[in-house]
């Protein structure tokens, strides 16, 4: 455990020394805030119209109308920027020959993998914390239901775990950071699109299976405010799977 924290500390230090964490955070927050802003604007316009219609109010609440679309859009942005956070983790060590230091130190491969994962997960956590200004701003002018909001953030955090563990796996495969990023784009977009094709195949067993593999529906449940064991299991097992693959790849490189 101590080793994991030491390694995680080193990774975090390297994130904050290099500009990458700042650039990723800036771009992510700028785009997310723009989406949030346009949702709020749409909602306020729409609720004005609804008021003029008098009594004919559609089922409108701020969570479904503002936060849900914002978070779903945010997850797509995350899909595009998270590989940029993970790509350096193993690739850079191999390129800079520092992997020889780690592999000849009394550290287990699990500790090395977990150290990196914990570090990047913490960076991601900070990124999510920084988006809390959105509900806080809205809470000044209107009532916000915090419970579904909590469920949404939990969903986003767990989904991030999957993104990061897949990215870590891609980074372990190569010593070229760009290749690592492209491979993790491929994996993540694949996991995303499999849901689209699932909707097209419909209710066949294969369609259902594809649907279960897809991240979209699982995330949507959380964002709606539902915390289900099915979705929890999905995200956690996918994360563990990614970490397991990473462990295998790092281990296998000793034998080459």
């Amino acid at each position: 455990m101590r080793n994991i924290l030491t390694l995680a500390g080193k990774e975090m230090q390297l994130y904050f020394i290099s500009p990458i964490a700042y650039v990723v955070a800036t771009v992510f927050l700028a785009v997310s805030d723009y989406i949030f802003y346009s949702q709020v604007q749409f909602y306020s316009g729409f609720s004005l119209q609804a008021r003029q219609m008098q009594g004919n109010l559609p089922q409108l609440n701020i969570h479904d109308a503002v936060f849900r679309p914002t978070f779903l859009n945010m997850s797509v942005i995350l899909l595009l920027i998270m590989p940029l956070l993970t790509m350096r983790l193993f690739a850079e060590e191999k390129k800079g020959h520092t992997s020889e230091l780690l592999m000849t130190s009394p550290l287990s491969i699990t500790e090395i993998v977990m150290g990196k994962f914990v570090a990047v997960l913490w960076i991601y956590f900070l990124l999510l914390v920084m988006t809390l200004h959105m509900p806080l701003i809205l809470s000044i002018v209107t009532d916000i239901s915090w419970k579904p909001l909590f469920a949404s953030y939990l969903g986003l955090f767990l989904m991030g775990g999957v993104f990061l563990s897949m990215g870590l796996f891609a980074s372990a495969l190569t010593e070229n950071q760009i290749i690592a990023a492209v491979i993790s784009f491929g994996i993540l977009i694949g996991l995303w699109l499999i849901g689209v094709s699932a909707h097209n195949t419909g209710e066949t067993p294969l369609g259902q299976f594809a649907n279960y593999l897809s991240m979209m529906d699982h995330l949507d449940n959380f964002v709606k405010g539902l915390i289900g064991t099915r979705d929890l299991c999905y995200f956690i097992s996918m994360t563990v799977f990614g970490l397991f693959l990473t462990h295998r790849v790092v281990e296998s490189q000793r034998w080459k």
Binding site: N3, T6, L7, K10, Q13, L14, H97, S105, P106
Partner: peptide, 22 residues
């Protein structure tokens, strides 16, 4: 190793302290 396994972004002390810990 043949190529010193150093992190170029760290200072000498930071790096050696990290190595000492691991």
């Amino acid at each position: 190793p043949e190529n010193p396994p150093v992190y170029l972004e760290m200072t000498v002390v930071e790096y050696l302290r990290f190595v000492a810990k691991i």
